[in-house]
Design a protein around this nucleic acid. Structure first.
Lengths: 339, 339
DNA sequence: GTGAAAGCGCTAACAT
DNA sequence: ATGTTAGCGCTTTCAC
């Protein structure tokens, strides 16, 4: 058994209350006694039990991180990066993070992750799009909540977002600047705020550049922005309109799929068409040509979200409905070129 | 405040002991009372507090997962996959996993991760190579330990390993079978058991095939198996020996670096030289040509490790010095061909 | 400035 | 079969 506060008290010749106060740097304790206590602690290699502390303070030192299982399983390590970001800041702040996934079809009757029910976490960070039913159920617990990379429908939460609209604008504007006129957008799950924002940015860019927005150049009926669906979307796009010279895919996964379609069908990139993605995943650099994209600072999303959470937890400020929008950055590589 | 066991007891008209027994399906409780209790629990939406339970049972329901910071930061999501694997099995087993990194230069005086000191975890899984000092310090805690993807020097721990020797053999044998005779091995950190095992497998394959093992074809003095070092190793190899027709890189990261070197220097793959890696990371498929490799079942490593841990925890079997060796699989893609 | 004691929400002997 | 009670290791009034 590891030593308890009692052992320390005995060794230091003081009461357990004094030990506790000394540990927490309470002013009422003399430096003399504090040092006595500290020495005993060191000699015994004492560390307070988290469970015991938690029972009385009603804190655990843990933060929950939840996302849907399909996001968790994605090929591109997007949410993994966000998770790692949260991990970076917890390290410096005496917290740990517990990961849990929920079903992407979470229904009202479903149970929340156990760590919420059993109060094993002091707050939860929700990453990516999650079902409304989940948010509603979660909101009933008075537990600090931070959303990252998803804008929840009910707008009174802390949110850390990507500047998707601006990113979409930058992407499309880049193509415009290269002289393209017939610029397509391929997307999926357009009900997703991030994706529809990117589309909005695209439209803004065309509009301000005096380029007509053609519905036939907007392919958005795939259900999930994955490689295969990028392939499918590209197929339908090019079968419909042979004049397209540039494609903006709503994310890199779809861009990779589109690139594959082009390779399979003799469409040269960037010779025949320029292609730009969104996210900036690892894979982009390995592609041939490397993919021009809009970089989403994934790790930073995580660190920001956790910073908000740590603030929330320490300041006890009831509810900050804070929005943090992290900027994106156009990364020009080989898949786009002047027409 | 969420309801406590007292609230349930009151509502059900029984004592808190009865509630506790009912929850744990104790046989002594009648079905009648159990149902009464269960109903009260449901009505109140009661969930036992983990902290309180932990204080008395001395369990937390958490497992620690530790790796060195440099592994954590690696480009290739290798340990991430192992981590995800552990996550899969915890989900079904009422555990959560806490992630912590340690410095790769962990020294004797350094502190262990806080979750170990504060007993916030019931056991710890150590992933990848970690400093001896860490293992020694950790071993002093009588806490279940499982090593995954690293064979600790002191051999009385549970270990989940990859069959590196066999994998090295398969890789080199594949090249031999394609008719290659001048087969090089490029590696790094040869003190790492996994890497030296792969080299051992390589040597075995050449030996049993009657091919001379030339020291000049074994480049192993890089310090870490990363892309850049693969590039460097390839450079030194080809500057030394122009007759090499096949290269076995100790992992995919180095293979990717080697591929880059070849691309930069007009060496065609697989036209001029065949190249095989080890690990099977996501990136392999995006390379041109896609990389032939030996697949390490990363997620499975994680699930196996966590399974061992869960067994350890439930069976209370003092110390199983169990070794699990998970098999690898040759994945032939475009980077190798008949000479 | 320090100690005694109550109590956090549970489990597990021990009574009944 | 169920209830009473004593802790688990800490924090935090409240006395002294």
């Amino acid at each position: 058994m590891s030593p308890t506060i009692k052992d320390v008290a005995k060794k230091a010749g003081v009461s357990i209350a004094t030990v506790s106060l000394a540990i927490h740097n309470n002013q009422r304790i003399t430096t003399i006694t504090r040092n006595k206590v500290l020495r005993a602690i060191k000699e015994l290699n004492y560390h307070p039990s988290r469970s015991a502390k938690g029972l009385v303070t009603k804190t655990t030192g843990n933060i929950g991180f939840v996302l849907t299982d399909d996001h968790f399983l994605k090929t591109e390590p997007f949410y993994t990066m966000i998770f790692l970001g949260t991990e970076f800041v917890t390290r410096g702040n005496d917290y740990y993070v517990l990961l849990a996934t929920i079903n992407k079809d979470f229904k009202e009757g479903d149970e929340l992750p156990r760590f919420i029910l059993e109060r094993s976490v002091d707050g939860v960070i929700v990453a990516g799009k999650v079902p409304d039913a989940f948010i509603q159920k979660l909101s009933k617990f008075d537990m600090p909540l931070v959303f990252v990379d998803y804008f929840p429908p009910v707008d009174d939460h802390c949110v850390v977002m990507v500047d998707n609209t601006r990113g979409g604008y930058q992407a499309a504007k880049h193509l415009v600047d290269l002289g393209h006129k017939e610029i397509a957008f391929i997307g999926a799950d357009i009900t997703h705020p991030s994706i529809s924002d990117r589309l909005t940015g695209y439209k803004q860019a065309l509009e301000t550049s005096g380029i007509e927005i053609k519905q036939s150049n907007i392919i958005i009926d795939e259900d999930y922005p994955a490689r295969q669906n990028g392939y499918n979307a590209a197929k339908r796009l090019f079968e419909k309109n042979k004049n397209v010279t540039a494609v903006f895919a709503c994310n890199d996964a779809m861009a990779i799929g589109a690139m594959q379609y082009c390779a399979d069908n003799g469409i040269k990139i960037p010779g025949d068409v320029s292609l730009i993605g969104f996210d900036d995943v690892e894979a982009d650099l390995l592609l041939n040509p490397p993919l021009t994209t809009v970089r989403v600072p994934k790790v930073e999303l995580g660190t920001e979200a956790m910073n908000v959470m740590v603030n929330l937890l320490s300041s006890k400020s009831a509810n900050c409905a804070k929005k943090i929008v992290v900027p994106v950055e156009l990364i020009v590589r080989g898949s786009t070129r002047k027409i």
